[in-house]
Simulated scan of single mutants.
Amino acid sequence: MPEPRDPVEPGEPPPEEHEAVPHDPTGLSLARETARALGARARRRRPPPSGERRRTVDPVSSGAHPDDRDPQTLSRAVHRLVDAKGWAAEVNVRTLLARWALLVGPTLALHSKPERYADAELTVRTDSTAWATQLRHMAPQLVAMLNEQLGADTVRFVRVLGPDAPSWKHGGRSVRDGRGPRDTYG
């Protein structure tokens, strides 16, 4: 009856047939043959593609204490993103403008709303010209208050706009330099 063989791993060439080797009590020939097989397998491995290296773990940052590789809370990840992109001043302005009623008072907040912030200029829209005048008189104090809370020169100017004027264009076809508003609406 033939002797059973060891299974062959996929991708490995079939074992070479050797002549009957006299029994080696020290196992030296078996060790040499195993080392030769392992060396051949290691030589057949492909090197990693160029530019791709194995990541090594920094033994200093590894351990039981929290580090940057641990899962982060969403708020911490957002704060890190805001800091990395340099959006901190913009986010602070938007947060403060979301609390407009606390900044200017509830009465004035009912009749005005911040529309835009760009290039250190805050644009505020009011619902009547009287409230626009009130807010224009208050603009220097508003700039000082915003800069105190947000940092120097975050807001340099407050532009106050009154209500939008009504449109006199009605329909898809109208005269470009038409009549416009007159002293009577009839």
Rank of each mutant, 00 (worst) to 15 (best):
P49S: 04
A139V: 04
P25H: 09
L150H: 03
A152L: 11
T34W: 09
P15G: 05
R41S: 09
P114I: 03
A118V: 12
P7Y: 02
E19Q: 13
A98P: 00
D6T: 07
Q141L: 14
Y185P: 05
L110G: 03
P10H: 09
P106E: 14
A118L: 13
W168V: 10
V60R: 15
R99T: 05
S128G: 12
L102K: 12
R54W: 14
E16N: 00
R55P: 01
T73R: 14
S62A: 13
D83S: 12
A31N: 00
T56Y: 04
Y117M: 01
P22L: 12
E33P: 00
P163H: 04
R76N: 09
R46G: 08
R94E: 05
L150K: 07
L122I: 04
D183Y: 05
R94G: 02
E115F: 04
R176L: 13
N92C: 12
L74S: 03
D83H: 13
G151I: 09
A101T: 07
V8I: 15
D67I: 00
T133E: 15
A89W: 01
H111S: 08
P166R: 15
S75I: 05
A37G: 05
G186P: 03
T154C: 08
E148F: 08
T184V: 08
V82N: 03
A35Q: 07
R44K: 14
V91A: 10
P59C: 01
R159V: 11
D164H: 13
S29K: 06
S167F: 06
D119F: 12
P15D: 07
A165S: 11
D119Q: 15
H137C: 00
R53E: 10
A139E: 03
R43E: 10
P66E: 08
E115S: 08
V91M: 09
L97P: 07
L122E: 01
V160T: 06
K169S: 03
P25C: 01
A37T: 08
R69Q: 13
R46Y: 02
L146T: 05
R156T: 14
H18I: 07
P181L: 13
V158L: 05
Y185A: 15
R94W: 04
G86N: 06
K169M: 03
G180C: 02
E19G: 12
S128A: 13
P114S: 02
A40I: 06
G51L: 10
V93I: 11
D67C: 06
R80A: 14
A40L: 15
V143G: 01
S29T: 09
L81F: 11
E3M: 03
A118N: 03
A31Y: 06
F157H: 15
Y185V: 11
V60P: 00
R43D: 08
R36H: 10
P49E: 05
A88Y: 05
V8Q: 08
L110C: 01
A152S: 11
K85G: 01
E52S: 05
R36E: 10
V82D: 02
E148D: 12
P48G: 01
L103D: 02
A101D: 15
H65V: 10
A98N: 13
T56N: 00
D24S: 04
Q141T: 14
